[in-house]
Nucleic acid binder design. Structure first.
Length: 612
RNA sequence: GCCACCGUAGCUCAGUGGUAGAGCACACCCUUGGUAAGGGUGAGGUCAUGGGUUCAAGUCCCAUCGGUGGCUCCA
């Protein structure tokens, strides 16, 4: 099955031409307002376009300048500027770009010629503006509308995305065929912000990040901890059924282990610096220093668990699982809510297998994903198969040098995907150091894409740890290892869940599952009876005994998105019934307390999602 | 880390150099209510932190800390 193409762009579409042309108009406007500015790239993107500029030294662009540039653009599109295309020989192109004083364009032009084999280079001219460009464009800037675009963001962007290069100033703009479509997009962006896990996470008291604790180190409030508990329970049940065994390993560890694993020194910058323990050795002036690191991953520890006992082929597959707490020193600027943090808890497992078991076991992992994702009703994600890049000149630093191992591993993983009938993209050069991987990619409501879970085939590290099992023939052999984390980390996964459900969780996952609303204080005794009945059955129940009117209590607990409200008044108390009001469902229902008790228990057990 | 913006009560925010404000939330009182906001009273702030300019700084300047968006969707 199908290897799918991501980001397929129709360059001949009117939308593409329009956005691309507007990018040129923006560059022209910027040149008018800031003489001496140098150009970077300026492509159309999903919701508009951007252009990168290098401003003359001392010029700092601020948000206020965006409005000015926008106005200048609106003037330009009213002028009569036809787009004219021409093809220049490579030598002429270089001469022209040099004369224009565009160093970045010269660099890219050379690359097009030297590496991509272009003989001629395209240029587009509209009015006084000339750009090296493959097009296509609209015929005349008059076809562009002054109200179809909006400059909205200013950002630093390194030339070619490499921080060793000069930093350019990027201006982002939205652009759509018409003003109403632009307006709609802006409204959608606003709406999406309301489902942002950072907003809902605070509103629903799920997590908090305190400056005093540290950036990227979230505190889980009781509501968030309840969700974590449910995910761990789910994982335990699924993994237990699939033959996994749970292990537990420490958070700090002596440095030697990370030399064995290869994390040191290669991955050191991604780890918190070591703790040093100074020990006076007896009769020795020299103090010994022992270094401990906080673990960034669980694999070395699981390998040590494997090694703790003599293993036989009869023990395999050995599936060691742990919700392990890891810390990584992520760059400050990349941290974001729960999706990018420095401390996280991973739904990790390492599966040790013989070569014969490898494919089936990898398929079983993919099957586990399928079950989880069906339960959560996820549909907005895609799979990515990451391979090594044998043509990469720096492959020696990036990948273990074992072409046969790569060929075998990649074949196994790809066959597993095919046999599971899954769609995926292929990303050459994105593999892990020790093997190919299959990642599940999600998008946040704010449009940022990230890896939710990763599954890797490791044909290398077990040997570094000298992991062995005794095979049927009595020989000592090294197992393959599958690293997998279908539920990712609590942090990212709960961020996904918050946005996926818009904070309105299914009952089993909801931090508060049932909230009891007594009609008046007279009904508190009955309400307490119902509360303790449900709580004794582990239903997360809360009683709203506040001195508020009923309407207010319903409003308050509805805005908390609690899945089930129980209304208890004279009627219910007299008949030993409850009146159920579900989140997002108009229709109310009154039923005997016993019936409700059974119903809610079953709904939670079966992890049903009752929707309106 | 780098670029831009931001930081005022638990939360959302107003306050453009001259005595720190509102709504929600919270506490207490009245109200004892039948399906999305009953009424009253009160408490709560070294205006992120530190330094500077000024007769005077939440407001202007600098630094630090923290947050938000962005840092190859490539002519």
């Amino acid at each position: 099955m199908p290897v799918i193409e991501k980001h397929k762009v129709d360059k001949q579409s009117d939308l593409y031409k329009m956005r691309h042309s507007l990018a040129h108009v923006m560059a022209q406007a910027v040149q008018r307002l800031f003489p001496g500015v140098k150009l970077g790239f300026g492509p159309p993107i999903d919701d508009g376009f951007y252009y990168d500029f290098l401003f003359p030294a001392g010029t700092v662009l601020t948000d206020a300048d965006l409005a000015t540039i926008q106005k200048e653009m609106q003037k330009i599109v009213k002028e009569d500027q036809p787009f004219q295309q021409e093809e220049l020989s490579f030598a002429d192109a270089i001469a022209r770009l040099t004369q224009m004083g565009e160093p970045h364009k010269v660099e890219y032009c050379k690359e097009l010629h030297d590496k991509k084999g272009f003989d001629t280079i395209g240029f587009y001219t509209n009015g006084p503006f000339v750009d090296m460009c493959e097009g296509p464009h609209v015929e005349n800037v008059r076809q562009l509308k002054p109200d179809q675009f909006k400059l909205h963001a200013l950002a630093g962007a390194y030339w070619r995305g490499d921080e060793r290069n000069v930093q350019l100033t990027r201006i982002y703009a939205y652009a759509f065929p018409s003003k109403p479509e632009l307006k709609e997009h802006i409204q959608n962006v606003e709406q999406a912000k309301k489902n942002d896990h950072r907003i809902l996470g605070q509103k629903l008291s799920i997590y908090s990040i305190a400056e005093e604790v540290g950036k990227g180190l979230p505190l889980w409030l009781p509501n968030g901890a309840a969700i974590r508990h449910e995910l761990e329970k789910l994982a335990y049940e699924m993994e237990f059924a699939a033959g996994y065994v749970k292990v537990a390993t420490p958070i700090i560890t002596r440095e030697g282990l990370y030399h064995t694993s290869g994390h040191l020194p290669l991955y050191a910058k991604g780890m918190y610096p070591p703790m040093e323990i100074h020990e006076e050795a007896e009769g020795d002036e020299q103090a010994k220093i022992e270094r401990y690191y906080i673990k960034p991953m669980n694999c070395p520890h699981h390998h040590m668990v494997f090694k703790a006992e003599k293993r036989s082929y009869r023990d395999l597959p050995l599936r060691l699982c742990e919700y392990g707490y890891n810390h990584r020193f992520e760059r400050a600027g990349t941290l974001q809510g729960l999706t990018r943090v420095r401390g996280f808890c991973m739904n990790d497992a390492h599966i040790y297998v013989t070569p014969e078991q490898l494919k089936d076991e990898f398929k079983a992992v993919l099957e586990l994903h399928r079950k989880y994702y069906a339960l959560f009703e996820f549909n907005d994600y895609y799979l990515r198969l990451s391979k090594w890049d044998p043509d990469d000149p720096k492959k020696g630093d990036k990948y273990v040098d074992d072409p046969a191992g790569w060929a075998f591993s990649e074949r196994i993983v790809q066959e597993a995907l095919e046999e599971m009938n899954l769609e995926y993209t292929i990303e050459p050069g994105e593999a892990a150091f020790y093997g190919p991987k299959v990642d599940y990619e999600f998008r946040t409501v704010t449009g940022r894409e990230f890896t939710a879970t990763t599954n890797q085939l490791d044909f290398c590290v077990p040997a570094r740890f000298e992991l062995e099992y005794t095979d049927k023939d009595g020989e000592q052999k090294t197992p393959y290892c599958i690293h997998r984390a279908p539920l990712g980390t609590h942090e990212r996964f709960i961020a996904i869940l918050i946005e996926h459900y818009g904070g309105a969780f299914p009952t089993w996952l909801a931090p508060i599952q049932v909230c009891i609303v007594p009609v008046s204080e007279k009904h508190l005794d009955y309400a307490k009876k119902v509360e303790s009945l449900l709580r004794s059955d582990l239903v997360r129940t809360e009683l709203d005994d506040s001195n508020n009117t009923m309407g207010k209590k319903i409003r308050t607990n509805t805005t908390r998105k609690i899945p089930i409200l129980l209304i208890l008044g004279d009627q219910e108390e007299a008949d030993a019934t409850v009146t159920i009001r579900r989140y997002g469902i108009e229709q109310q229902d009154t039923m005997p307390l016993d019936t409700f008790h059974t119903l809610v228990r079953e709904e939670i057990r079966a992890r049903k999602h009752v929707k309106g």
